[in-house]
Design a binder for these strands. Sequence first.
DNA 1: ATTACTATAGTGCGAGTAA
DNA 2: TTTACTCGCACTATAGTAA
Lengths: 226, 226
Amino acid sequence: MPAGAAPEDKELLKQLAKIGGLHDYVYTSSGELAEKLQVSQQTASRKILELLDAGLIVRRMGTRKQLIRLSPSGVEVLRREYADYRALFQSGEGISVRGRIVAGLGEGRYYIGREGYRKAFGKLLGFDPYPGTLNVEVEPLDREKVAEVKDMDGLMIQEFQAEGRTFGAVKCFRAEIQGVEAAAIFPLRSHHTNVIELISPHFLREKLELADGAEVTVRIEIGQRA
Amino acid sequence: MPAGAAPEDKELLKQLAKIGGLHDYVYTSSGELAEKLQVSQQTASRKILELLDAGLIVRRMGTRKQLIRLSPSGVEVLRREYADYRALFQSGEGISVRGRIVAGLGEGRYYIGREGYRKAFGKLLGFDPYPGTLNVEVEPLDREKVAEVKDMDGLMIQEFQAEGRTFGAVKCFRAEIQGVEAAAIFPLRSHHTNVIELISPHFLREKLELADGAEVTVRIEIGQRA
DNA sequence: ATTACTATAGTGCGAGTAA
DNA sequence: TTTACTCGCACTATAGTAA
């Protein structure tokens, strides 16, 4: 569980992120990091080794200094931390993302057709979902927002067994598209942030007269509980 | 400097905030907090005393348990932390707030008339400000956003001496109101978040034909440097 | 220059317990 | 029940230093 990082570990990850380690390798030294953390060079060196060991960072040694960047799980730790703070300071609000309608691959229709999911959605969201999903390709600038939302507390559907196979867990958020009630659903397995899948009691595509490529705004509610 | 809190201190503040200690007293015990922090009751108790000593929380003892809430500087610590994360994950973006035009008290006009400020604004922002400010009363739901912005890195005007008195430091952010270039200015002394003061190379009120009470949207750029 | 090992000093943890 | 003290012990930080 990457969320279980100690506060000091998060601090070092944060400092690394601040100098660019989120997106790429940064050229730095244990001495430099020691200053930022207000500890000795030796301690910084040891902390680096600990984070390496925990798989939260990756590095390549230089002849002097070293190249360090956060690993995906290191990024995840910071993202979760960020989600915590967002929830604290802007609970009850929502975020809006813009995007355009794209054709799905029919998977949404398949999954939502399974009784396990349909019943779970009904119980969780209070509506019987139309048997299909509306896929919105999120504008690149807003994809970061989607990643944030996915880390927040949402309405969970636990994985279940049926028809001789396993159906994975899904996280949902109440949402609204052009004023119509809906919910954004995120399969826990997937880490995509470029497409949002929406379900709704309505046949959204028809009700909103949406053709592929149509521009829409989706508002997702955050900070909610069941 | 309240930002200098140790990582573990922030962790306890965060846990307290999560259970409501940001806005009001919460009824809790050292044992409960110990669980959340994954430490012993004794350690939690000691940490509470440390935060009290540092002035980051305030409390009233009950016969059993205790009532704890974050002090203003405790809130400030978390806010700064939040600002750090926001800068990491959404640098280069901006935030929008809605509000309505209100009459100023003429202070803006006075201050911006002082040569020290006028020259500093010109140097920092690249325009010669119109000698007056436009005051926007921010919609209550968006005031939290303003508080966030004020914690972020902005363009600073240091305090200076002139005319036998001291003129205080001001933090500025490039902004835009209804498509027109402007800057939001925040005197460091003030902690208000309900009114934003805007300066601009233009006489905004006339250019945008704004009467008192007119609704406007202000977009403030964040994550910028000089 | 660096990183990072070893040895020691120091700090913080938690068990026990009083109030 | 609570809070929070003392104290022994373990862990963590730093100094010194090798590579």
